[in-house]
Amino acid sequence: MKKAKDTDKNIRELMQKQLPGAPVDPWFVKKVMNRLPDKPARRKKSLAEVVCYIIGILGIFAAWGYSLHMTLNQGLTVQTVVISAIVLLLTLFCIGIFAVPALRQSL
């Protein structure tokens, strides 16, 4: 066992000392980076898509407006808390599904 380990150690030292390393190439990184594919062009949104986004955003604002209106009129009741929670979840859901990928694509 010890002999095998010594042999391994000797071979390792021999190779690491005597096998050639890659020749220095200061342009290698640049060559690689030049070969990377171009960033994909941003897909143009259709009119229908834009209209849907606007309706969605207006809907979220309307929902918050309704929730705020109910809370101001009725005070803090179970009903107003539940409605606010639903509107909050809906807002977070829309941010997660639509806003984050759009932001990521624009970076």
Partner: peptide
């Protein structure tokens, strides 16, 4: 990515050379 390339290129090229 260019930093990763810089970090690993020597070892990779040496291995491929041999």
């Amino acid at each position: 990515f260019s930093r990763l390339v810089e970090l690993h290129q020597d070892a990779l090229r040496r291995f491929l050379l041999n």
